[in-house]
């Protein structure tokens, strides 16, 4: 184990987690979206998930967040089962734009903080820091409609991070960003992860992002999504985007692609090379 997660205390545990969406009405088939999946996340580790489109990554995240119930198996967070109830201490950044269009950037970021018992001054200070960290200076009073897609996504990331969750779930959070911003935002995320010691579960479709950010990378199969392999990156905790120059980085990305190519071909209905 590397990074802050090396103590090895289990933070999240998935055992035989399976999700089947029941077909609505007669003649509609059930969709076996996910699993069975067994996975332990150590406290403070950075775990990334890659997998072909539609393989159940978002479904897995919703199970972890307590937004979706499992069909079979159990999911536990900090020793307590997650049963379709959102546990305290979990923060989520969704794949879709989740900004509130009627609130300014600052109000969006402070949304969850207002529910807490923090004094107003502390709320304001945290929001101001998040605005700066996310590169949104000068836009605190702007409305989401005045921002680009990437900026809106950064607002959503900030809104989650200011709450300092112990488990951070991110569903392709940098999908709307350009490559440069994506790498730099990745660095910010690493910095926050080091500072807070939170456990991070990151879904991404960018192999280099997974290879650069994570302690471990789970590769998922085509639907129904299972974990094909878990790759340990072995990076030190104080890494940043400059590790992409290292030869180990290329090896990890290549390994990820070897797995994913076959799975992605299946999704596209092209079979495997062998077939």
């Amino acid at each position: 184990m590397h990074g802050p997660g090396r103590q090895g205390e289990t933070h999240v545990r998935l055992e035989g987690v399976t999700k089947v969406f029941r077909g609505l009405g007669r003649g509609r088939p059930d969709v076996h979206a996910l699993g069975p999946i067994d996975l332990d996340l150590a406290k403070g580790e950075f775990f990334a998930v890659v997998g072909p489109s539609g393989c159940g990554k978002s479904t897995l995240l919703e199970v972890l967040a307590g937004l979706a119930t499992v069909t079979e198996g159990t999911a536990t967070f900090e020793g307590r089962p997650i049963k379709g109830e959102v546990p305290d201490g979990v923060g989520v950044v969704f794949q879709e734009d989740a900004c509130f269009p009627w609130l300014t950037v600052a109000e969006n970021i402070g949304f969850g903080l207002r529910e807490t018992s923090l004094p107003a001054g502390e709320v304001e200070a945290r929001v101001r820091r998040a605005v700066a960290t996310m590169g949104l200076d000068g836009f605190a009073g702007a409305y989401p409609s005045q921002l680009s897609g990437g900026m809106r996504q950064r607002v959503c990331i900030a809104r989650t991070l200011v709450l300092q969750p112990r488990l951070i779930l991110l569903d392709e959070p940098f999908g709307a960003l350009d490559q440069q911003t994506r790498l730099l935002m990745g660095e910010e995320l690493l910095k926050l992860w080091r500072e807070t010691g939170a456990t991070v579960f990151l879904i991404t479709h960018a192999l280099d992002e997974a290879a650069m950010l994570a302690d471990r990378i789970g590769v998922m199969s085509a639907r129904p999504g299972r974990l094909l392999e878990i790759i340990e990156t072995g990076w030190p905790a104080d890494r940043d985007s400059r590790i992409i120059e290292e030869s180990a980085f290329g090896a990890i990305t290549a390994k990820l692609w070897r797995h994913l190519r076959a799975e992605s071909l299946k999704v596209l209905g092209k079979g495997t090379d062998a077939a």
Partner: peptide
């Protein structure tokens, strides 16, 4: 996604 956000915020 906004309704999910509400649930995450445990409103």
């Amino acid at each position: 996604v906004l309704m999910k956000t509400a649930r995450i915020a445990r409103l």
